[in-house]
Design a binder for these strands. Structure first.
Lengths: 337, 337
DNA sequence: TTGTATGCGTTATCAT
DNA sequence: ATGATAACGCATACAA
């Protein structure tokens, strides 16, 4: 497969390469006479010419690509976010390069290096933990960067995230309204802003109402169904009379409910449970899960927009966009009797 | 941020760029004296030098990137596949460029064009439908390509997929063993190999056993929970005495079960249901879903391996790898009484 | 072992 | 309106 270059096209159209280049460039094509442009276009068509973005990038100093790092591609929450990013980016003819760090700082570092070597025009990181602050600050000086989903305070990096503080508060207020006074929460990793925010929002709202809240740390590594089970088991061991539990994501909530059931406790009859994220199928569970919904697609779109606006040098844009969560009341929470 | 080039490094190390290039190239670094290499390395370190992969690619004729196209990033099945791909690729220092077609042929076409313009070294397509055959055949002559998950018969493109025929058969045999004789299946899109295979495998096994099977087409556009509901509703309308249903994925199975429940029918008491994919949380449903599990991670790894082996010109490798599915029996199927 | 020179494919500048 | 040419950053063939 003899790769067709601009030179070939120019030769066939009997023009100089620079003319061919102009004719094929969307914005400069007006500088060339219509008839010759047509000739070039036809030649390109005939040869099956494809611009070489590598060469173009080298010459122009921009690659037309944006790196995107996510922690976990299997996290159902991330799909909409990526779609939002891709949508906003595709709109301006940029190609997202998506990668997964598996929440490993080492992997994140490697990925960033690769992306920088690829000379991405921008970077969107949804996988940042507090301990990655130094790394990401260094990255951010090399390429326009925005954080999404997870914030890193004092990093100085612009961010689009959801309001986890409000999310935790929403969960707390819902349970308080139902008459609960003693609570437990299954906390997620402490050095991830989303989880830290949920913990603090919940704790503060409970405290403000004079309630008591027990933190279960067992699930602080990976917030999975299994972690939810073991967290619930711990909770039952040292039960201090809590009647409601807030899990920092739906997986843990589901695990907890399963564990409760196994111990003969029914949700919500014996204990109320609130999850977080509203991932698919939570509405199909028995009972359907009360949870907090986040605007993933919107978040992705805004993150990409923020990146683009920064890339254009208009530093005037907001550095921090926070999206409101929404409480979805289903059947795992009920009024105290 | 004045971008550091090889020239800068060479200048600081007081060597020629070619020497610097050699010193920094992992495999050619043996050609340079240890002391000078150290000097170059230190200079690179000091300046924070990053190779420019664009320029390197232009010169070497390979970019070190592989395009990956998926139909739907939110499909929980795809996560492991992508991880498998990334793992195999990362191992050889290749960067996967992941993209999503949303199952649109138009989008697929655009994406392929972009990826080709990016001069990816290879392409893995998990989003191919039958109608994309022409497009993908054209793509495959330009760049080493492998299909994954979804096959396209008579495309001549190597493929790694699961054995959907066997998957359908597994479902059928399980239900037959339980004593069922009249069936319905909620079919997925006809022009996607995975669904076509499931349909055919199920149908054939039923026919071979002298059973009867009704195909419900209502869900043939997007196989979602909603499609499962409406499919089940259709099924109930024209009920012909079937006692078991095979849904072509878990979402549809879940939707069907919900619809049945709404009509006062219990699963598996009144009707047995088998899903497909074993996506997360299906084990947490009430009742837990009987389904067919596919080796996603393994599939991704093998697809990447196949691509790499092809890229190396060893055309001797198998053109078609088919992975065995596994039946996961849970509680939505039961013995006929 | 190191340096010199050239070209990868494109675009921008400067002429014409 | 078009052509000639240089340069982007790097890697290699060849020379020394």
């Amino acid at each position: 497969m003899p790769t067709v270059t601009l030179k070939d096209v120019a030769a066939l159209a009997e023009v100089n390469v620079s003319t061919a280049s102009r004719a094929l460039s969307p914005d400069k094509s007006s500088l060339v006479r219509a008839s010759t442009r047509d000739r070039v276009l036809r030649a390109a068509q005939e040869l099956g010419y494809r611009g070489n973005l590598q060469a173009s990038a080298l010459r122009r100093g921009r690659t037309g690509t944006v790196g995107v790092v996510v922690a976990d591609l299997s996290n159902p929450f991330i799909g909409p976010v990526l779609r939002g990013i891709a949508s906003a980016l595709g709109h301006r003819d940029l190609l997202p390069i998506m990668t997964e760090s598996r929440d490993s700082s080492e992997a994140l570092s490697k990925i960033c290096n690769k992306l920088l070597a690829q000379r991405v025009d921008g970077l969107i990181v949804t996988a940042g933990r507090y301990r990655d602050r130094t790394l990401l600050k260094a990255v951010a000086v090399e390429v326009p960067t925005v954080l999404a989903v997870r914030d890193i305070p004092r990093s100085g990096i612009p961010v689009v995230c959801h309001d986890d503080l409000a999310g935790g508060r929403l969960a707390a207020e819902h349970l308080l309204t139902l008459g609960h006074r003693k609570f437990a929460q299954l906390v997620g990793p402490r050095d991830v802003s989303s989880f830290a925010g949920r913990a603090e929002g919940f704790r503060a709202a409970i405290a403000a109402a004079g309630g008591r809240c027990l933190d279960i740390e067992g699930a602080s590594v990976l917030p999975t169904v299994e972690a939810g089970r073991s967290g619930a088991a711990q909770f039952l061991d040292r039960n201090e009379g809590a009647t409601a539990m807030f899990a920092h994501n739906d997986s843990m909530a589901i695990g907890a409910i399963a564990e409760f059931r196994q111990h003969g406790l029914q949700v919500p009859r014996d204990i109320s449970v609130v999850g977080f994220n509203d991932v698919p199928l939570t509405d199909q569970l028995r009972p359907p899960l009360t949870t907090v919904r986040l605007p993933g697609y919107e978040l992705g779109r805004l993150a990409a927009d923020l990146l683009l606006s920064r890339g254009e040098g208009s530093e005037s844009t907001a550095e921090r966009v926070v999206l409101a969560p929404e409480l979805v009341i289903r059947d795992t929470t009920k009024q105290m009797t």
